[in-house]
Simulated scan of single mutants.
Amino acid sequence: MPARILVAEDDRRQADLIRRYLERDGHETTVVHDGRAALDRARRCSPDLLVLDLMLPTIGGLDVCRTLRSEQDVPIIMVTARASEDDLLQGLRTGADDYLTKPYRPRELLARIQAVLRRTARAAPAEPQQYRVGGLVVDTVRHQVEVDGVPVRTTPAEFTLLVCLAAAPGRAFTRELLLERVGAFDREVTGRTIDMHVLNLRRKIEPTPTRPRYLLTVYGIGYKLAEPPDGEAGDAP
Score class of each variant (00 low, 15 high):
180 E>T: 08
102 K>W: 01
212 P>E: 08
171 R>I: 02
144 Q>I: 03
226 A>H: 12
201 L>F: 06
174 T>I: 07
66 R>I: 04
130 Q>M: 13
32 V>D: 00
29 T>Y: 02
236 A>Y: 05
25 D>C: 10
170 G>L: 09
202 R>K: 06
144 Q>P: 00
82 R>T: 07
177 L>V: 05
128 P>R: 09
207 P>H: 06
66 R>S: 14
143 H>E: 10
228 P>L: 04
49 L>M: 07
160 T>M: 11
160 T>I: 06
23 E>C: 06
146 E>W: 03
56 L>V: 09
92 L>H: 04
62 L>G: 00
34 D>K: 12
234 G>R: 03
141 V>M: 05
94 T>H: 06
53 D>M: 09
64 V>M: 07
10 D>K: 06
114 Q>G: 13
83 A>E: 09
185 F>Q: 15
204 K>V: 00
93 R>T: 05
146 E>P: 01
27 H>V: 03
30 T>G: 01
133 V>Y: 00
112 R>S: 09
235 D>G: 13
165 L>G: 03
203 R>L: 01
63 D>V: 04
208 T>F: 06
80 T>M: 07
177 L>P: 00
76 I>Y: 00
20 R>P: 03
201 L>S: 08
20 R>C: 07
117 L>F: 05
138 V>W: 06
138 V>M: 11
78 M>P: 12
3 A>R: 04
156 P>H: 12
191 G>I: 12
160 T>K: 08
184 A>T: 15
187 R>E: 14
83 A>K: 08
46 S>N: 13
118 R>E: 13
64 V>R: 01
223 Y>P: 03
132 R>H: 05
20 R>H: 13
52 L>C: 11
